[in-house]
Write a protein that binds this DNA or RNA. Structure first.
Lengths: 320, 320
DNA sequence: AACTTCCCTGACGGTAACTGTCAGGGAAGT
DNA sequence: ACTTCCCTGACAGTTACCGTCAGGGAAGTT
């Protein structure tokens, strides 16, 4: 961080009117405290009316709140903010309106040369929307407010694809974005436990005035991933799955959102996974079918048999 | 007079809105004029929108907009910028360093009250990284520079999963982010045509000093999607594909990144697609297999037969 | 009174940045 | 054609900056 940026940051901190210590400044700006003292001295010498108190409850304040330190970004910083907005848009971020406002403000604060440079680099990248017929998740804005302010919501949730008549009261803890989908995690009063809900399957949503307490030290991502991936608990049930095939197909399989978690070892022509027998026979066959003949199951034999079994069933199914 | 004092003095002079020449600045601050030019450059590079006019009646001014309305973001705008940065990070954006700088500057410009509000809303959302064993695409930074400045690159590309000894000279037109993967589109001198390359398959990359001209009115996304999705050109070859099944499976299929493009009509228990016979018999069988018995091909009969054919081949394959 | 939390300063050595000078280029106005 | 402006690179000398270490004093708490 250049010196001028840090000097201006200190100015801005002081302008907020709060008393602040040199230690706090040094931590926030990640500077040596001796440098903080120097910069304060520089600002003081330059005429900024800084008041300094020693001892307990010491720190710095400004005599008046008349100093305004301007905020500006160099072209790289601006370009990266613009690009970040594009990624958020592609994800269907609910705060798009505020984001557009911010981006608009930013774009009005460059001269022509800066603008040309920013455009040059902004246009280097194009984010293509991944096709999705899922309508933009409709209740994200309401959900976010309920999460932030801690109010329960009443929802109609369409889990099985069939209409349900029962409302659920949910304390929404957090919104999750994962694998191009939006979820909300919260305490479901209908099931009396923490659940996650796909936002695009919420049929209706009503805010309530029921205030709830957010749980402390709740890790939404831990809960979410634990529910998604059955945890491996009993070491005796672990089976080795060995798949051989071309580099490309193996690469794809090892990067699969589900199976990738169970990867144990990889070489150029084979991949070894460790997972439970249950998972092996229920999920894996269908997961492997799209790879056709570009991969082969080497072990276990039981999975090869299960594969053939599944294929036979499908033949019968599609012939009737 | 320390440098910081003079820099700030120039900034306040410009803030007055009057046009001022470098000579005037140098006299007033008793500095060499070369140093004035340097300081102006420093401020410009840092993002201060200085307008400079050469010749008679020349001099410096600040962008009017900046004087009237210094850059300021409310808590919603700030939160949305912070969230946008998280989405960019999840995508593996190459400009993360500049982005972190920008975010850092932003967070230093909040007072304590704003900060509490921003944290409250920022923590409403959590973006979970989609598992991917693909290493972060290593050459994005070099690529971006070559794209922006218009210089060819020499790459080793690993398309088939086998090592290749031949370098390719590529004029990189644009970087693409699509479906959680990074690509570069450009003119390949080896193939003498425009090609797209997956960045994680680039084995090595060397900048060159060969300057090329960016084509005008080149739409990277048009090129990219046209190559990905075979265009439907001859209306006589169009076939109707009808799939029946449960709401959930249909929903998934209609949202598929490939097949979704060909969706013609949808009801609660069936979906109708229009596409070419070729595509139908080569890609669609493998694409439908993971859905097992939750869907059924109603039309055309030829695809039902093709499905059974594929299944039979797979049985033979997996039994040996 | 002792201790802790605060602001504060000088000195040092390494090193990074800064400065003025010189030379040259281009845009805009008279 | 000339003048007034902004602009840049290169060079050598020099100055400033930074973190570390040591030390001092004021204010509050126990």
């Amino acid at each position: 961080m250049p010196k001028i940026d840090n000097i201006l940051a200190i100015l801005w901190m002081l302008s907020s009117g709060e008393k602040i210590t040199a230690k706090q400044i040094s931590e926030k700006l990640e500077m040596n405290i001796r440098t903080v003292y120097r910069y304060i001295d520089t600002l003081s010498t330059s005429g900024v009316p800084i008041i300094s108190d020693t001892g307990h409850n010491g720190g710095y304040t400004l005599l008046n709140h008349f100093i305004e330190a301007p905020l500006f970004f160099d072209f790289e910083e601006q370009t990266s903010l613009f690009h970040a907005a594009v990624f958020a848009e592609e994800a269907g971020y609910y705060g798009g309106e505020a984001l557009n406002r911010a981006i608009s403000k930013l774009s009005k604060h460059s001269n022509q040369e800066q603008e040309a440079k920013i455009n040059q680099h902004f246009n280097s990248l194009e984010v293509i929307s991944r096709f999705s017929s899922l309508s933009k998740a409709g209740f994200l804005n309401e959900l976010e407010l309920s999460v932030a302010d801690g109010y329960s919501v009443k929802i109609h949730y369409d889990k099985s694809g069939e209409k349900q008549l029962k409302f659920r009261l949910v304390d929404p803890y957090r919104i999750i974005y994962w694998n191009n989908k939006w979820y909300v995690i919260g305490f479901c009063h209908l099931r009396n436990e923490i659940r996650s809900f796909r936002v695009d399957r919420i049929e209706s949503l009503m805010p309530t005035e029921n205030k709830f307490e957010q749980p402390e030290n709740f890790s939404a991502s831990d809960f979410f991933m634990n529910n998604l991936l059955p945890t491996i608990e009993d070491k005796e049930e672990i089976t080795t799955l060995i798949i051989t095939g071309g580099n490309r197909a193996l690469e794809d399989i090892c990067g699969h959102w589900f199976l990738g978690h169970y990867l144990h070892q990889r070489s150029s022509d084979q991949a070894i996974f460790l997972l439970e027998k249950d998972i092996l026979h229920t999920y894996i066959p269908y997961l492997l079918l799209p790879y056709g003949k570009s991969i082969r199951v080497t072990e276990p034999i039981s999975l090869k048999e299960r594969l053939v079994e599944v294929l036979s069933e499908l033949i019968n199914f599609h012939q009737n």
